[in-house]
């Protein structure tokens, strides 16, 4: 625990916290193989249980990175406390930003889900929705992705340290796809691709690997979901399939949830 008394000229304190998630996003921090040791000299990684036994559960932080969605009451309480103790709170990844893949349970009967998964359902207590961090506390920056991209993570940390706005673009995956010179899988192969409405950041990975984008980075700024749905239908994608595509990794994001609901309605 940092005793403020004789702290050397304050290295900013970083905390990494986890709610409901797969750990992939915080792993991205350990995955900054070339930068990790340098970063640890610039910032005091004061709480990062996945990487260190030196923890500071109740400490104060200049920057808190929060991974995961809120899907149990105790997580909500923990989150409120993290917010209180952190100057800047940055959500990392789709779970924290839009509820994550586990938000697929939203709108479903959770007690029935519990029965489906657990041998003895009586021992399970959980909230019936998986919600993003911003549904509970104010968030200073949302870093998208499932998982987040390591370069973007470093950019956000650097920008916060240096005191500038992170250079992260809210454009479509198509922009990255085109910069990389990929052949558009939608146009050239008729593959359903969500790229036109999805937030850039991954480097257009799916089209690079000959498949349509499935939306890890969530909706871009002003996503034209209805227009894309209409176009994909022209290409023969049925409503039920469209609904599933929007209700996936970032299905908890309002723009995608709404489009999915519209398609589900149409399907019924």
């Amino acid at each position: 625990m940092g005793s403020e008394a004789h702290a050397p000229p304050a290295r900013p304190r970083l905390g990494v916290f986890k709610l409901a998630s797969c750990d992939g996003c915080q792993l991205t921090l350990i995955g900054c193989e070339d930068e990790l040791l340098a970063l640890s000299e610039k910032v005091d990684i004061a709480h990062f249980p996945e990487a260190s036994s030196r923890t500071d559960v109740h400490g104060r932080f200049d920057v808190a990175l929060v991974e995961g969605s809120v899907s149990a009451e105790w997580q909500r309480e923990e989150l409120l406390s993290i917010r209180e103790r952190s100057k800047l709170l940055v959500t990392i990844g789709a779970c924290a930003t839009s509820g994550g893949v586990q938000a697929l349970r939203n709108g479903k009967d959770v007690s029935e889900f519990v029965r489906a998964v657990y041998a003895s359902p009586a021992y399970i207590s959980t909230l019936d929705r998986s919600t993003p961090v911003s549904a509970h506390v104010s968030v200073d920056y949302e870093l998208r992705g499932c998982p987040i991209d390591k370069h973007q993570l470093l950019e956000v940390l650097t920008a916060l340290l240096v005191g500038r706005r992170p250079a992260i673009r809210d454009e479509s995956v198509c922009m990255e796809c085109k910069r990389r010179g990929n052949v558009c899988v939608l146009v050239a192969h008729g593959e359903p691709c969500l790229g036109p409405v999805v937030h850039a950041g991954c480097g257009a990975l799916c089209p690079r690997f000959a498949r349509g984008c499935y939306g890890c980075f969530g909706p871009k700024e002003s996503p034209a979901t209805a227009a894309l749905a209409a176009r994909l239908k022209e290409l023969g994608v049925p409503a039920a399939d469209l609904a599933r595509r929007f209700r996936s990794i970032s299905g908890g994001a309002p723009a995608f949830a709404d489009e999915a609901a519209k398609q589900e309605l149409e399907h019924d």
Partner: peptide, 19 residues
């Protein structure tokens, strides 16, 4: 917190499962 994968996989297209 539990994340209910087996439950929400039901009804998905089998091609989505690995993702």
């Amino acid at each position: 917190a539990p994340r209910f994968f087996e439950a929400f996989l039901r009804g998905r297209s089998l091609f989505e499962v690995p993702d």
